[in-house]
């Protein structure tokens, strides 16, 4: 294992220390329990929004804490769900009296830990709503598994809900925006290489030099198929078709197209992916009206990409364009 770390045990703590020093104008980092919180939290009368999950997906979620997006993020150990005490303390720290939304990715551990945290927060008199994002179309037998995994749509949900909360909408209204993203967003990813969890020290799975895995999750969960590496355009087709076929996007629909890097793939390749994904969407009569290209929900140093498509309406477009100021996403300010 070759990594820019000191000791595998201290990876998350030292990362958080770095974030605290780098962005004191935007966020504060609380240790034990660990959470990253907006520097100006709690904001009176505003719905608080928190998310969280295992570390190793940076900039998600800590990089999205700030004005117009998350109020707090709870990082767990690498690829391990955070614990309810972190979520409870973060919930209390961001509660401005208007309630708190938990945005949860659909993984067994995340869902259970957030459920317990929501129960504990309600017991302390804080109004909490939870929305579980499950947009990964690679999981086919969702009835016989833990269900579809939460991937790229999570980033978009955090942006749109953050803007809705900033406007002063109620907890139910902000949660409704989140549910819309859950229903209208679909994703699929692929890997060219595996990744190495620091405290494990060896790759999560073996992937030969000339092979790729289509339909992989963000922790190296197995995908739909493994095959020889193909040109980018063919790979993009294999990702886009299941997304487009999964829900009846209609010709004329306006969509946001999000091409994400898994951590080890450079932007030069992501734009090659975007170019083809745009062409396929357009061929199906979809109007790509917004986009996001870059590494926003990663899997350590894994090489690969995921594509997310989200159907947009007028309200969502307005929320997407609203100002945001976080370490990883910033515009309009």
């Amino acid at each position: 294992m070759k990594k820019l770390i000191n000791n595998p045990e201290n990876v998350v703590r030292e990362e958080l220390e770095g974030i605290a020093i780098a962005h004191p104008d935007l966020v504060k980092v609380h240790f034990e329990p660990n959470y990253i919180v907006r520097a100006d939290a709690p904001i009176k009368g505003k719905v608080g929004i928190i998310s969280g999950g295992g570390s190793g997906h940076e900039p998600m979620h800590g990089g999205f804490v700030g004005m117009g997006m998350l109020d707090a993020a709870c990082p767990g150990a690498v690829f391990t769900s955070p614990t309810p005490d972190q979520m409870l303390e973060a919930t209390k720290a961001v509660d401005g009296g208007a309630g708190v939304l938990h945005i949860v990715k659909n993984y067994t551990g995340d869902v259970m830990n957030f459920e317990m945290a929501a129960d504990l927060a309600r017991a302390e008199g804080i109004e909490v709503e939870s929305v579980v994002i499950d947009d990964d179309v690679a999981v086919q037998d969702s009835l016989y598994t833990a269900g579809r995994r939460g991937v790229g749509s999570t980033v978009l949900a955090e942006k749109l809900c953050g803007a809705a909360a900033e406007e002063g909408r109620s907890l139910k209204e902000v949660a409704d925006v989140c549910r819309k993203v859950k229903n209208w967003g679909r994703s699929m990813g692929m890997a060219l290489t595996s990744c190495t969890v620091p405290h494990v020290g060896k790759p999560t799975f073996d992937l030969p030099e000339d092979e790729m895995e289509i339909g992989i999750g963000i922790h190296g969960e197995p995908g739909r198929t493994r095959m020889k590496v193909k040109p980018a355009d063919e790979i993009v087709e294999m990702l886009m078709e299941p997304i487009i076929n999964d829900i009846p996007y209609k010709a004329g629909d306006e969509v946001l197209l999000f091409v994400n890097g898994m951590g080890g793939t450079p932007l030069i390749e992501l734009y090659i992916v975007y170019r083809k994904a745009y062409e396929i969407a357009t061929k199906h009569g979809l109007k790509v009206v917004r986009n996001l290209v870059g590494p926003y929900i990663t899997s350590l140093e894994m090489a690969g990409t995921s594509i997310t498509m989200l159907k947009m309406d007028e309200d969502m477009l307005k929320l997407w364009d609203a100002p945001v100021k976080t370490p990883a996403l910033r515009w309009g300010v």
Binding site: G76, T80, T83, G109, M112, N113
Partner: peptide, 12 residues
């Protein structure tokens, strides 16, 4: 256990 285990095993 709730505050130290994490994952699915912690809450269970």
């Amino acid at each position: 256990l709730l505050s130290t285990v994490g994952g699915a095993g912690g809450p269970l």
